[in-house]
Simulated scan of single mutants.
Amino acid sequence: MNLPKIVADLVKTQNSFDSVAYANCFSETAVVFDEGRTHNGRKEIEHWIADSNERYKATIKPVSFEEKETESLLKAETSGNFEGSPIILNYHLVIANELIQSLKVSG
C-alpha cells in the first residue's frame, strides 16, 4: 500500500509508542477528535497519545488508504489493551504542507 510519508510516519510512531515523534506528525495548530474528546495543538496531542499509549498499547496495521479532495481516509486494524481488540478504525485525516492538520478517529 502506498501511503504518503506523513501517514507512514504516523503509523510507525504509533507502533513504536513514540508520543513525541507522533505529535511531530501534526502541525502546531492541529486538532484531534477521539473518544468524544478534542485535543488542540501539538502539545495536547502529545499528552493525549502518551496517555493513550500507556492505557491501550494500541498498534495499527493499515488496511486501506484513500485520498479525497479535502480529506484522506486510513482504515487500520487496531489492536491493543481494550475490549473488542482488534477492531477496524477509520482515521479521517486532513493533510497540508506535509503535516496533519486534523485527525478524527471513528469506528
Score class of each variant (00 low, 15 high):
residue 44 E to F: 03
residue 58 A to M: 11
residue 63 V to H: 02
residue 46 E to T: 08
residue 81 N to T: 14
residue 94 V to C: 10
residue 69 E to P: 15
residue 49 I to A: 09
residue 86 P to A: 06
residue 50 A to C: 05
residue 17 F to Q: 08
residue 91 Y to A: 03
residue 60 I to Y: 04
residue 65 F to Y: 11
residue 71 E to W: 10
residue 86 P to E: 02
residue 87 I to T: 14
residue 81 N to F: 12
residue 14 Q to W: 10
residue 28 E to T: 05
residue 35 E to R: 14
residue 55 R to S: 15
residue 61 K to I: 02
residue 67 E to M: 10
residue 10 L to G: 03
residue 30 A to W: 07
residue 32 V to P: 05
residue 97 N to R: 08
residue 63 V to E: 02
residue 82 F to T: 04
residue 86 P to L: 06
residue 41 G to H: 12
residue 29 T to M: 05
residue 9 D to V: 00
residue 56 Y to M: 13
residue 5 K to S: 12
residue 102 S to T: 04
residue 100 I to Y: 01
residue 57 K to F: 08
residue 67 E to R: 09
residue 83 E to V: 13
residue 107 G to A: 14
residue 84 G to I: 10
residue 51 D to V: 10
residue 24 N to Q: 15
residue 22 Y to E: 03
residue 44 E to H: 04
residue 58 A to F: 15
residue 75 K to R: 09
residue 42 R to A: 06
residue 4 P to D: 02
residue 51 D to K: 12
residue 29 T to L: 07
residue 4 P to K: 03
residue 85 S to N: 05
residue 72 S to H: 00
residue 69 E to F: 13
residue 47 H to V: 15
residue 54 E to G: 12
residue 53 N to G: 14
residue 50 A to F: 03
residue 29 T to N: 14
residue 21 A to Q: 01
residue 103 L to Y: 01
residue 31 V to C: 06
residue 7 V to K: 02
residue 5 K to D: 09
residue 40 N to S: 12
residue 48 W to A: 11
residue 12 K to D: 01
residue 92 H to G: 04
residue 89 L to S: 07
residue 70 T to Y: 15
residue 16 S to E: 11
residue 85 S to G: 06
residue 35 E to A: 12
residue 58 A to Q: 14
residue 73 L to Q: 08
residue 107 G to M: 15
residue 73 L to I: 15
residue 38 T to C: 07
residue 48 W to L: 11
residue 96 A to L: 13
residue 57 K to Q: 12
residue 43 K to L: 13
residue 24 N to A: 13
residue 24 N to P: 13
residue 30 A to I: 08
residue 22 Y to K: 06
residue 26 F to S: 06
residue 107 G to K: 15
residue 41 G to P: 07
residue 75 K to E: 03
residue 33 F to R: 11
residue 83 E to L: 12
residue 20 V to Y: 13
residue 107 G to I: 11
residue 103 L to W: 00
residue 79 S to H: 08
residue 48 W to D: 10
residue 84 G to L: 09
residue 101 Q to W: 02
residue 17 F to R: 07
residue 45 I to D: 03
residue 98 E to G: 08
residue 106 S to T: 04
residue 70 T to I: 11
residue 106 S to M: 02
residue 80 G to D: 00
residue 68 K to G: 15
residue 99 L to M: 13
residue 9 D to L: 00
residue 37 R to D: 15
residue 47 H to P: 13
residue 70 T to H: 14
residue 65 F to T: 03
residue 105 V to H: 09
residue 56 Y to T: 14
residue 53 N to F: 12
residue 93 L to Y: 01
residue 38 T to N: 06
residue 4 P to L: 02
residue 57 K to R: 12
residue 86 P to M: 05
residue 102 S to I: 03
residue 16 S to G: 07
residue 15 N to I: 00
residue 97 N to F: 05
residue 26 F to A: 07
residue 2 N to Y: 07
residue 15 N to T: 00
residue 17 F to D: 05
residue 57 K to L: 10
residue 9 D to W: 00
residue 36 G to L: 01
residue 55 R to H: 11
residue 2 N to W: 06
residue 105 V to M: 13
residue 35 E to I: 14
residue 106 S to W: 01
residue 48 W to N: 08
residue 36 G to S: 01
residue 70 T to M: 12
residue 83 E to H: 09
residue 36 G to R: 02
residue 62 P to G: 01
residue 82 F to C: 06
residue 105 V to D: 08
residue 45 I to Y: 05
residue 83 E to D: 12
residue 80 G to I: 00
residue 95 I to K: 00
residue 103 L to C: 03
residue 19 S to R: 09
